[in-house]
Nucleic acid binder design. Structure first.
Length: 275
DNA sequence: AGCTACTCCTGGTAGC
DNA sequence: TGCTACCAGGAGTAGC
């Protein structure tokens, strides 16, 4: 699933491919992917827009551009199965193509999405708003101290708190499990019960696992996530607990357990993560 | 305010 | 083999 490392990898690869391009038209194949707009509606918003920059905030990609000197932009959230690729405009469609933006250069940006949960939102900067989001994991403003202040009043399990984008931006199910393993913390521990030392260990573990995943272009354990040039990520080869149910822990050989925490499948080592 | 349950989707797969 | 039932996932929302 695209989480911070995957979305940032997409951003890095896509940026040089789209910056400088001017959109000539949009083809909408599934209008719920873009707030109900049809091809004419999305084309009206985007034709003539020249792309200037591609940013990332949390798991959102922010395409910024301008038309006649006025800023116009769109955001894309890939959710679970969304994929962005740049192809020749004459290239055949993927059967799961939902939206396509055609450029004046003869290239096109394809937004494919098997499960149709991904979203593209278009408008002026004031219209393309993001929900309330917590700090970026690599931002200097996030620390063990700050994290403890955010969770010390919470009774929910730490796994659920890591997934809450209002508290911390960019971590999803895979990296939450991997970070908790590296920090030696049980996913069921309540926020209120975490010590400052444990919060510091968790902050370090989140940064460590996200850095390692970025260095491998993210994780592709299923057929969904690919970079914009079609390459799979490699971090799935470094999972310690995620999708390793029943397999021996690399640290202590105890079989990895899968349970449900906050309605999410959660993988952990019952020996290394007793606390 | 904090938390849980439900919704959106479809391909893959487990079980019969 | 062919069928059905269920599962995965992020985030928005309704409701307690």
């Amino acid at each position: 699933m695209p989480e911070l490392p995957e979305v940032e990898t997409v951003r890095r690869e896509l940026e040089p491919l789209v910056v400088g391009e001017t959109i000539t038209r949009a083809d909408v194949h599934w209008n719920r992917s873009c707030a109900g707009l049809n091809s004419d509606g999305l084309s009206a918003q985007l034709s003539g827009v020249r792309l200037r920059a591609l940013h990332r905030r949390a798991k959102y990609l922010l395409f910024r551009g301008e038309r006649a000197g006025l800023p116009q932009e769109f955001s894309v959230h890939l959710r679970m199965t969304g994929r962005l690729t740049v192809r020749e405009a004459a290239a055949p469609y993927d059967p799961y193509l939902r939206v396509r933006l055609v450029f004046d250069s003869g290239l096109a940006l394809h937004f494919d999405d098997v499960r149709k949960f991904g979203r593209l939102l278009v408008g002026t900067p004031a219209e393309v708003t993001l929900p309330a989001l917590g700090p970026e994991p690599f931002d200097a403003s996030w620390s063990g101290c700050v994290w403890r202040d955010r969770v010390r009043s919470r009774l929910r399990p730490i796994k659920a708190l890591l997934l809450d984008q209002r508290l911390l931006a960019g971590v999803g199910n895979i990296y939450a499990d991997e970070a908790l393993f590296r920090a030696g913390l049980s996913p069921r521990r309540r926020g209120v019960d975490l010590t400052l030392r444990e919060c510091e260990a968790l902050v370090a573990a989140v940064r460590e696992v996200l850095s390692a995943a970025l260095a491998e272009d993210g994780a592709s354990f299923d057929r969904f996530y690919r970079t914009p040039t079609g390459q799979p990520g490699r971090f799935q080869d470094h999972f310690q607990v995620y999708s390793r149910t029943g397999k021996p822990c690399y640290r202590c050989s105890t079989p990895i357990v899968r349970v449900l925490v906050a309605q999410r499948s959660t993988h952990y080592c019952p020996k290394c993560q007793r606390n």
